[in-house]
Design a protein around this nucleic acid. Sequence first.
DNA 1: CATACGTTCGAACGTTCGTTCTAATTATAA
DNA 2: TTATAATTAGAACGAACGTTCGAACGTATG
Lengths: 235, 235
Amino acid sequence: MGTVPATRVSRLPSGTSRHAQATRFDRRLEKILGHATEVFCRKGFEGASMRDLSRATGMSLAGLYHYCESKEQLLFLIQKHTFSTILEKLKAQLANVTDPEERIRMFILNHLQYFVSNQRGLKVLSHEDESLQNGLSSEIAGIKREYYRICLGLMEDLRRKRGLDFNTRTAVMSLFGMINWIYTWYKPRVDGNAEALAEQMGDIILNGIVHSGNRQKKKDQILKGHLTSRNLRHR
Amino acid sequence: MGTVPATRVSRLPSGTSRHAQATRFDRRLEKILGHATEVFCRKGFEGASMRDLSRATGMSLAGLYHYCESKEQLLFLIQKHTFSTILEKLKAQLANVTDPEERIRMFILNHLQYFVSNQRGLKVLSHEDESLQNGLSSEIAGIKREYYRICLGLMEDLRRKRGLDFNTRTAVMSLFGMINWIYTWYKPRVDGNAEALAEQMGDIILNGIVHSGNRQKKKDQILKGHLTSRNLRHR
DNA sequence: CATACGTTCGAACGTTCGTTCTAATTATAA
DNA sequence: TTATAATTAGAACGAACGTTCGAACGTATG
């Protein structure tokens, strides 16, 4: 094993007219990745076989291997493309917003918008989080870490600017839970579009942390709610 | 295929002294389920082989099949036992609480307490949600539905009693996301015990929905916060 | 002792797995 | 056209899969 790289993911040097050639290969690979996403989503990474992918793409097994090195690399390409796209869109959207609260709302909206437009990809990203090994795994983990740190930064900004007292790690992880778990239950006809959902989830997490710490004896709460009041509780 | 049930999960009629015999079989099966949980958790259901389980339990392959009918049934037994236990504990704990808010807090606490005491089991339950087929799948789905409906009922009670206006389905699903996603990030040394986490998540979801709907133009919010005020927004 | 039964095992069943080999076919460049 | 390289497929590789078989073991009751 391990000899002769042979087929590269995207080879820039290609003898012929370069443009048509490269895009032809890449377009074909993109189609394959689309079908692979659907199959991985439906059967899981381990549960899906290369023969399933062969059937889904209408290619032979050997034909598939002309465009990728392994089944694992297909998953890697799907996850990397999905995650990179989300991250890229996020940065673009965050550039237009300065208010800490609105930035968190934008984070949620961006995630849910992408989810609605590419449900299968995001499920494969979330659900097959542990399916890659070694080098491939760590590259995805790097993007994930950046995504996490951005969100953590948004939380810390809000916390600082409003003088709040809450655990930012727990808040971020809870938010991630809300927006990632969605692939297990979301139905467009029932749950509305990304904007509506993002607003609800934004309400929950933001009001949740802004008012965090004032455990109410029922009626007490009515008089509270001042934004800058520091409600000091746990950690 | 399909002939001779042979090995039953737990046979009540057993020739000998009945007690010692039945418990011996059941105890052995319990050990196997414990090891299977660990392996399924680490490698995933599809990724784990019966030979992995054989190695983990120290038994031969054929020995394993003396205690179960299939790999799928092992997953089923794990999921059913885990889910049933959570549900049972939940009902017991809810019996002592009447206040709607405290009941939701109890729901969260019960879930997290069980998670901390059986992390692997809960991961196998959450992560392998789609790994069972047909009959086995639908039995677990039934328990899941009951669990969901209990939580939905708690939300609706709170909503009704406080005259709130929020989408209960979204709230429940968001809460489920928070408490289920935890298996991807929880570290005891970093994140504290179940009680601390349950309080934080309880703060988020409860303050989140109680104050839901009052999207603030920053300073507006200070004057709001009245519990029974109906803030009419989305849907 | 003999009988019966729960328990365990090595070995093998047939199938499917991810991957590769070789050769044929197609498109492009000279 | 011919030469070159990209693309495809049939068939097969060895390994691993879930499961089963038949025989042995241990123990306890008749």
